[in-house]
Write a protein that binds this DNA or RNA. Structure first.
Lengths: 233, 233
DNA sequence: GTCTATATTTCGATAGAC
DNA sequence: GTCTATCGAAATATAGAC
């Protein structure tokens, strides 16, 4: 690393910039993106004015337009940062706990519980971005690539675990990742509206299905005997 | 347009009204709600003006405010109609095909394929409404009740099927419905961004998991032999 | 009940000073 | 690069005619 100027061109990656101006620039960028993530998640993209975002970031609309060209550009930049962050967190989480039982529980909790840094708006932003992606061709392909990456990482992590434990995944890693991600997303959305309807244990146990494991495990006792099912909540 | 036959019996229910004024009123209501469903789904609630909705319904903002008091009221009315329609369709679908194999396939296709009457914006509106519900206390409890009803219907339909075939659901109907709905929703959202990543057969097969059926069935051939998994797309 | 017209506010985006 | 000031457009909601 040469701590030289490299004044005009794009600074090397997103590492710490050298000059005070570049520092200020990156700081402003980060503050605007963070504020956008918070506000877009809590109120929605179209319900938030560019001025509100700038104000929340302790900047003005001028800075916002100078950096991103407008609200739409800010959204795209947010998507990229969002993508990187999630990939990093996911990789760290997978590397951390090799047991998919704890792993699934951790993932589920990270989806449903308020996060210390990103608050409880994680799922809201995820869905907000999905809506924009499903509607417009500008955001669509980018978010599609992100989901593809998440599926791949997830699937490979599970494949590694299966290989290590001698098991065999019943499906390709990509398809396994798609199912796991689908269950997590669909259940998290229901959980958000009615937490009691989707207990933690239910999701964690159901996630074993895509891995080819039978659902009968230790956590939940099987139904007593003749009754077709229990109606306990 | 003189209302000659004032057959003013008590206007029973939401059936066809008697007087021309009432007819016109219900027609306007319906047109506004349909236009709102279409536009809210395609562009989002906050991105659509009240005037645009009224225009698409061949009415004016005055009529909209007279009926619903504003855009928010229109959204709430839409939610109620939406709830009834989905419940009816779901009940009809369940009653129609008793085999859950075909049943799941039909449900999945109805989620992912363009519908002749409601177009391809079904999922978009569903997610749009979810976002509003997750954000505001006005919409939240209403949509939560709707999901609860869908889970109950779904679960009971599956419990009936299980009882008829001698099988036993590994979980309560509510929990089974929650899992099935979760898989459908989460997979449909991925499918929307990248249809190839979530093949039809994958979802239909995976939906057997929550029913307690083993995944190895007729549709998909098991992996050849020693290979841990195939990487085919 | 519905329409026309409008009052009031707010938004997105830009120009120019520093 | 960032801020102040501002313009034109568009939004919500209302008032009054029919």
């Amino acid at each position: 690393m040469t701590p030289r100027t490299a004044s005009r061109t794009t600074a090397s990656r997103t590492a710490a910039p050298r000059t005070p101006q570049a520092r200020r620039k990156e700081l402003t960028r980060g503050r605007l993106i963070d504020a956008a993530a918070e506000l877009f998640a809590r109120k929605g993209f179209h319900a938030v004015s560019a001025e509100a975002v700038a104000e929340a970031a302790d900047r003005t609309t001028g800075a916002l337009y100078s950096h991103f060209g407008g609200k739409e550009g800010l959204l795209l930049a947010l998507l990229e940062v969002w993508k990187e962050r999630t990939a990093e967190e996911l990789a760290a989480e997978i590397a951390h706990s090799p047991d998919p039982g704890d792993h699934f529980g951790a993932m589920w909790r990270s989806l449903t519980r308020p996060h210390p840094v990103r608050g409880d708006s994680w799922l809201l932003l995820e869905v907000e971005l999905w809506l924009h992606a499903a509607r417009g061709p500008a955001v669509g392909p980018r978010l599609a690539r992100r989901y593809e990456e998440v599926r791949a990482r997830l699937g490979e992590g599970l494949a590694d675990w299966a290989r290590a434990t001698g098991t065999t995944l019943p499906r390709s890693p990509e398809k396994t990742g798609a199912l796991v991600l689908g269950v997590l997303l669909g259940c998290a959305m229901q959980h958000r509206l009615d937490p009691d309807a989707v207990p933690d244990a239910l999701v964690v146990e159901a996630l074993r299905g895509p891995l080819g494991l039978t659902a009968t495990t230790a956590t939940a006792p099987p139904p007593p005997e003749g009754g077709p099912h229990d109606r306990r909540r």
